[in-house]
């Protein structure tokens, strides 16, 4: 390698050249260089192992045992794949899987459509835009319990605002009150609406951030090329948003598929198991009715496997797209 030295300063002799550590001002250390990297990584690796790998491993481990949750100290009895065989033949499991899938697909789709529409609106210029951009985060910042309480009041059959509005417009006679969360279909829709309302601001924030960095030149070039507003939306806006929407879809799917609190607090999985999702089934199996920790773990492991499959397909798709 060619070195450039100041011509007025003699090149230092090999033995007097400073070692990188000496230059950095760090003196001799008790840890040899080859272990230094590992030592510096160790704390984060330990935290990672303790918080992620251990619970995951323990969950998989317990799924092979019959464990009574009232007495975890016994460690349970090893039953092999019995818990998995049990859930394969369990009708409730398949019903919850179907409900979870439907719930995730509907909620994520609506969140993306609503979030993108609102982001497009907030990306245009109008008076008070900054204030509206702040207010739109309101549902996302509210605690889930508060959100559920507010929506339970809105849905209330006797003094709920939704029924009041419907009565006022005159759609239904005042004598018929609608018990929104007592009917399987309307309860499912009701829970979907709350999940969409609570989490669509997340989509707004991400999509808005992406919209703001789409170069205006592209729109101008398209205008000159003869593209109208609809063509510009599909050919530029949507194409530019595609990557971010795929990421949002993945993140939201993982989140909604695992979501427990909204559904449980609103309907406890009812009525007639219309909103029974896998997280609720895990809770009920492991900690509530059955109190079978092993079976609950087996359901959780299957949920984990499903999400891993979704992620694998997603990342393969992304890699393929990148290679194009």
């Amino acid at each position: 390698m060619t070195r450039i030295y100041d011509r007025n300063v003699a090149e230092p002799a090999e033995e007097h050249r400073a070692s990188p550590r000496a230059v950095g001002g760090v003196g001799p250390t008790i840890i040899p260089d080859r272990w230094l990297g590992a030592a510096m990584l160790a704390p984060s690796v330990l935290v990672f192992l303790a918080l992620l790998i251990f619970p995951l491993g323990y969950g998989i481990y317990t799924s092979f045992f019959r464990i009574d949750t009232l007495d975890l100290s016994t460690g349970g009895t090893f039953v092999g794949f019995e818990n998995y065989l049990w859930l394969l033949g369990n009708e409730q499991f398949w019903h919850a899987l179907k409900t979870s899938t439907m719930f995730s697909v509907v909620v994520v789709s609506l969140q993306i459509v609503l979030g993108t529409a609102v982001a497009l609106l907030l990306n245009s210029s109008f008076k008070g835009r900054t204030l509206v951009r702040g207010l739109i985060l309101f549902p996302y910042m509210m605690p889930v319990v508060a959100v559920v309480l507010v929506w339970l009041l809105l849905y209330n059959a006797i003094f709920g605002v939704i029924n009041y509005l419907i009565f006022s417009v005159g759609f239904i006679p005042r004598v018929d009150s609608i018990a929104w969360l007592a009917n399987p279909t309307s309860a499912f829709i009701g829970v979907v609406l709350v999940a969409v309302w609570k989490y669509f601001p997340f989509v707004v924030v991400i999509v808005l951030a992406r919209l703001q960095v789409i170069p205006q030149d592209l729109y101008e070039a398209a205008k000159i090329d003869g593209a109208g507003p609809i063509s510009r939306f599909f050919d530029i806006t949507l194409r530019e948003l595609r990557d971010v929407l795929l990421v949002v879809a993945l993140l939201r799917t993982i989140f909604i598929f695992n979501n427990f609190e909204i559904v449980y607090l609103m309907t406890h999985g009812g009525p007639m198991q219309a909103t029974l999702t896998l997280p609720i089934l895990v809770y009920e199996t492991a900690l509530d009715g059955d109190r079978s920790f092993g079976r609950g773990s087996a359901i959780a492991v299957v949920m984990f496997a499903i999400l891993m499959c979704v992620m694998t397909v997603y990342f393969r798709f992304l890699r393929k797209e990148d290679q194009k």
């Binding site: 030149d217 592209l218 101008e220 398209a222 205008k223 000159i224 003869g226």
Partner: peptide, 17 residues
């Protein structure tokens, strides 16, 4: 713009990525 019979080359090229 589309009805002006013009074409424009932008500083950033503005190619559709």
């Amino acid at each position: 713009p589309r009805n002006r019979d013009i074409a424009m080359v932008f500083q950033s090229y503005a190619l559709y990525p």
